[in-house]
Amino acid sequence: MGRVTQTETIPTGAGDARITWYAAGPGARLVLALGHGAGGGVEARDLQALAAHLPATGVTVALVEQPWRVAGKKVAPAPRTLDAAWHDLWPALRAPGLPVVAGGRSAGARVACRTARDLDAHAVLALSFPLHPPGRPERSRADELLGTGLPTLVVQGGNDSFGRPAEFPPGDHELVEVPWADHGFAVPKRATLGQDEALRLITGAVAKWLGSLRGPRE
């Protein structure tokens, strides 16, 4: 079970960000940095499940709160402001001296995809990637996902109104579907997959993918 080992405040050009560390200990081989979405924070069920599960597999998890969230604001700023803050706090994520996998859920996944190559991230994890606004498939954000140039895993709910798995274009990314799940990975009571099972599917798939990643010089 992962536990909080440190919480630190990181100054950025957009204000103070916050990183909550769930350390894997001396055997750590990766840092997984996870940003939150535009409608919630790091208390999201998938982020918390990964923070609880992955340290035991040798992955230190860093849950990152953007400055707007730390300041208590209700609305996220423009994408360029989110990206700039992510750039500013990246040195703190690299401080443990391990390869860093850039990740996040929803808007946080977009930030990770847009910035990963410039920041020399090891790989990208996109949870509930918002492929398009609900009901607006013509406003695709596929270029952000397809442009990472890095090993990329998408974990997507089967009933995500921001883009169901079948809507995703082909590419180099891997995609894992969470049956029945919505954008927040909640599953309805009628689903054959329970909520705990859905979270285990997510953590298991992410752990397996992280374990398959090669080292930075391989």
Rank of each mutant, 00 (worst) to 15 (best):
A126H: 01
L119W: 06
D172W: 14
A17C: 05
W68V: 03
L210S: 04
D160A: 13
D83T: 07
R164W: 11
L131C: 07
L93H: 13
T20M: 04
G72A: 12
A76H: 07
A198I: 11
L47C: 10
A24M: 07
T152M: 04
I202Q: 05
L213V: 09
E167Q: 15
D182S: 11
P77L: 05
T5G: 11
A24N: 07
R164V: 13
Y22P: 15
V154M: 13
L89E: 00
G27R: 14
G158S: 14
I10N: 05
V100K: 03
L32Y: 01
F129R: 10
S212P: 03
A85N: 00
A181S: 09
I19C: 09
L199N: 00
V155A: 08
E197S: 07
H36L: 11
A62G: 04
Q6W: 12
A121E: 02
W68C: 06
H183R: 08
P179K: 10
R45C: 13
G40C: 15
R164T: 15
E43H: 11
A191E: 09
D83A: 11
V4R: 10
R141T: 09
V154G: 01
P130I: 04
Q156H: 10
Q48K: 12
E43I: 13
L199H: 00
P26T: 06
A95W: 10
V187F: 01
A28G: 07
G25W: 08
E65A: 08
V31C: 04
E8F: 13
E65K: 07
L210N: 02
P130L: 02
G163I: 02
A52C: 14
V187G: 00
L93M: 11
P96N: 08
G158H: 01
G41V: 11
A76M: 11
A23E: 13
P188Y: 12
H132L: 07
A33L: 03
P133M: 05
I202K: 01
V155E: 02
P179N: 11
L213Q: 10
A76Y: 01
S106M: 05
G27V: 14
D16C: 08
A112E: 06
G211D: 04
E218L: 14
T192L: 15
V124M: 00
A121D: 03
P169L: 05
P170N: 11
G215S: 14
A123D: 02
L150C: 07
H53W: 12
E167I: 02
A71S: 08
W21T: 05
A92R: 12
V64M: 13
A207R: 03
D46W: 12
P11R: 13
L30P: 01
A126P: 00
P79V: 02
L125E: 00
A186H: 12
G41H: 15
P169Q: 04
L153P: 00
R105F: 05
E174H: 12
P134F: 04
A56M: 09
W180Q: 15
A121P: 05
A76P: 15
G135Q: 15
G40F: 06
A95Q: 14
